[in-house]
Write a protein that binds this DNA or RNA. Sequence first.
DNA 1: ATCGGCTCGCGCAA
DNA 2: TGCGCGAAGCCGAT
Length: 478
Amino acid sequence: MKDRFRLLNDKPQGTGPVIYWMDRDMRSRDNWALLYAQEQAFALKVPLLVIYNILPGFLGGTLRQHVFKIQGLKEVYDDLSAHNIPFHIVSGTHTEKDIVSFVTDVSAGLIVTDFSPLRIQRGWKEYVSKHVSVRCVEVDAHNIVPAWVVSQKSEIGARTLRPKLYKLLDEYLEAIPSLKKHPYNTDHKAPDIDWVVLEHDPHIDKTVSEVSLKGGMSHAQSALKKFITAKLSLYGKDRNDPLCEAQSNLSPYLHYGMISSARVVSEVVEHSGVSISKLIDAQKNKAKIDPKSELTLVDSASAFIEELVVRRELSDNFCLYNPQTYDTVDCFPAWALASLRKEEQSPREYIYTRAQFEKAQTHDDLWNACQKEMVETGKMHGYMRMYWAKKILEWTRSPEDALSIAIYLNDRYELDGRDPNGYAGIAWSIGGVHDRAWFGRPIFGLVRYMARSGCESKFDVKAYIQKFSPEVSLFAKK
DNA sequence: ATCGGCTCGCGCAA
DNA sequence: TGCGCGAAGCCGAT
């Protein structure tokens, strides 16, 4: 097993049970943190317990994210029970303290957790590793190559991360073992959980309604199957057309770790019929391919791997090495921020408040359609996310206002909100992060501009607007 | 429909 | 030191 862990403290290992503190990766299959914890428990011949703390309203999350998460946790609970691994789900407002009291109560000998580059989670982990008396280990169960292994600095863009990642990818894409039925019993049985009560937690913000997409490992797996059999071959050609069903729709599942990106990669590789290194080469040689030539399945698979792996892992790199600034304008490259500052006095044709954006009340029916897609479905098409965020910059007084409005809306309405991908994507759109400088223009400075006319030439804007324009109630009934 | 210019800075070759 | 080129573009000329 390739090393994917690092120590969070230098305390000794105890003799009690091994605890996997599940946080970012809510799955029992293909989870390297859980597998590492079980491997350690086998070596020590001790029980293995899993704990998850539900923090209601985490970073602006609402009912839709909560319900999606509970659906996923239920499946994990059942699967872990079948493997004789008790899953303790607690609900509390001080995650770090709740975890410390749990591990103290069960006299844990070793704590294993999964990795997240986000500030709040890193703070919890620092607190826990300080306040317990035993060893704490962090495993990157989310990225294929652990974020701290692939690079030790904030990368300038995909082009600098890509070669580092590709050098290690093959090695880290080893076959993932199955979870075993755990042979060591514990007195700390999993408590019975009333899922209905949990779902109806009174602390959850119910002003944003549930969506139809269902959470959990099996729904994630069906979304993957559907993508591979019905959409993958179109991905190369149609992925930027919000009317074509060419996207994977996996990002909510990937965000919650309900599916492992390594699993997605291996199934895509298998279906494409060529090796991962061939897919990487196809991407590297993309420029040499005649753009007029028919895009093959291999080209599609290659483009998908680029987005699934390179850009996702770049987002983790971005948050990991800009922990204090990834959601502020201070993470913008100097050339971009300086040019945005110069443009702060240029007149804005439209200025909207956060509430106007939230209610999809701009003059631009294309922008309003993007907003409605997100509010109604919990998911905005990837291409439209760029247009959406860039227009918020265009129609607010300052980059600060734009950034905070975009992050607020993203975290509140997207099922995959509060993810490094969201912060990186918004910083790319508004602040030129991971992008190059472009021809200067009012408001945007050197940050890449996007125009509605560009959308008009790429897809059927009218049809997209139509799809989300019927006057459906945007907000849950009180 | 297609092309070139716009703009900055990193990584690498020389 | 110089050169190539980049996370998804725009615009005007042809």
